[in-house]
Amino acid sequence: MELITKPGLSNCEKKNRSLIVAENRHRRVDVEKLIEKTLLLSAAVFVLIIALITIFIFAKGLPLFSKIGLGDFLFSNQWNPTKGFFGIGTMFIGTLLVTMGAMLWSVPIGLSSAIFMAEIAPPRIGKTLGQLVNLLAGIPSVVYGFVGLIVIVPFIRESFGGNGMSLLAGAIILGIMILPTIINISRDSLLAVPNDYKSSSLALGATHFQTIRYVIVPAARSGIITSVVLGMGRAIGETMAVVMVTGNSAMIPTSILAPIRTMTSNIVLEMGYASGDHQTALFATGMVLFLLIVGLNLIINRLAKAGTDDGRG
């Protein structure tokens, strides 16, 4: 800048001007670099959050295993915090049973709805159904739990006996809640099957239904499996709806009308007043949940990769 104050020839002035331009450009590049760094930082937030979640939940949960063995924690059915028994066996089984129960009915209905929407229904109906499914996905879990508590639980109590708060009530409500996950992802993968496959199959004389069964569904299988695994992850992690309808006794259920307690229910019910080892044990339960869900996600990631490889081959 000091060059500008010096008097000089016009030639020199031109040089000055170009220097100023260069300097401006230099400053602009600096701003550009700064913005790029800022944006990079916001992307890095994702990595930071996952790291923090992992570190804090593990740091809070792992110390439990200096007091009790991993085997006792996972497989013992004794959960009695006041006496120092922290076995999540019953809760693990509760989660497993209610998840299986939900999938038992919602996977077949979800998949056939997805096929209906993608292949059979007229496009306008398929689209409207898609919007309804999105609405189903948008209803909060506490509303599902509430409706389950007011409608499904009394219905079970009056038709089948028992208290009504049960494994069955949980499986019904949870099944409804994972329907959108199963339907949306399988429908998208069914719609992504190239049209040539369909027309070739029809040209060869196969019926529409044969084409769906032997061509379209197999071609979309990695997406369909992904939808089921994601639905399972949602069921395992679901909390509020399950707490409200399953009765929450920490016992191994003897029938589908018996109450259960899931791992997630255990956390949300006891976290409010837990302290010391009890709190540590709840975080250790969270750790198990976290590992389960991340494990399922990694499986899905693999599946997605396998799916794209298939497409190329």
Partner: peptide
Amino acid sequence: AGIPSIIFGLF
């Protein structure tokens, strides 16, 4: 995106 809300609550 796949982590259940109870885990976010614990964290």
